[in-house]
Amino acid sequence: MGTNEHLTDEDRAVLLLREAMERTAGELPPLPDLAGPARAQGRRRTARLRAAIGGGVLAVAVLGVAGAAALPGGAGTADGVTEAAASPSASAPAQASPSASGPPPPVHIEPSPGESSMAQLPPAERIRQENFQDQAVTVLQDLLPEAVGTVQRTDLTVRQYQATKDGNTFVVIFSVRPASGRGDGRRTCIEVKGQTCKKATLPGGIEATAATSPEDGGLIASRVSFRYGASDVLLSVRPDTGTTVSAPVTKEQMLAVAQDPAFLGLVRTADSRPMEEQQTVVQGG
């Protein structure tokens, strides 16, 4: 007893922990006289039980030490114990940031004079369109070639997205618009003025046309278009005129996106509950 008088509060806590663990383990019943694999299994179960009980005692003892250290004049105020307890980064597990588990935030685009934006939509409709955009971002990010970069939705209109890679910014248009009844001229392709086309049949017998064509400055834009249900569908990637870089997508890659079930699932959703107004000419591609 005289020896314990010279121990610190932390040393006494360690001794208390050791005695409690020995006492707890000693109170467990002895292993039954089993044979072969059954005996080994019994040992493993008993070891796990003792470890679990010991862990519970350890947790209680550690809490006791931390509590003693927090008291005025308590041991541990200068050995790092209280610092660890007070620092969330030292004691709490790392938490994943919200951006790591979902699509990237939208890109803000200021509407032109007289132009409306998604912010002006009724709240329920705005939420519906934003949810659709988030789904579209996930699908487009997975299906478009890596050279396009990181795909983000914009807050201007449900049909407009943006992709960035190595300092280049490409406007991505994904439009599912109620058909005008006059046909979509983009599904017919004439290979003139540098424009090249390729056709393919999508699931369900849908005919799609993909094309690459030069825009102002000779930069190349890529697109694919087709009629689905009652809607005209357009997916286009436009060049970055600021850095003079053409859209890094081929006709074949655009057709591969259009044929994918995940992309067609998005089209089906937008066709059943339109988010765009009917328009004779589909812009942006």
Rank of each mutant, 00 (worst) to 15 (best):
R12D: 09
A13D: 06
L15M: 12
L15Q: 13
L15Y: 13
L31E: 10
P32A: 09
D33W: 00
A40C: 00
A40S: 08
G42T: 04
R43P: 00
R45P: 00
L49S: 03
G56P: 00
A59F: 06
A59W: 04
V60T: 13
V62M: 07
A69C: 13
A70Q: 13
G73R: 09
G76Q: 08
V81Q: 12
V81C: 09
S89W: 05
P93G: 10
Q95I: 04
S101N: 10
P106L: 07
H108R: 14
P111K: 13
S116R: 14
S117C: 09
R128G: 09
T138S: 10
L143C: 05
V151E: 03
V151A: 03
A163W: 02
T169E: 15
T169M: 11
F170S: 09
V176C: 02
G183P: 01
I190T: 15
K193T: 06
G194W: 04
K198N: 05
K199D: 13
A210D: 06
A211I: 03
A221F: 02
S222T: 11
F226G: 05
Y228P: 00
D232I: 03
L234P: 01
S236T: 09
R238H: 03
G242T: 15
D260T: 00
D260V: 00
P261K: 12
P261N: 13
A262Y: 02
F263N: 08
L266S: 08
L266R: 06
T269H: 09
A270F: 01
A270R: 09
P274F: 01
V282C: 04
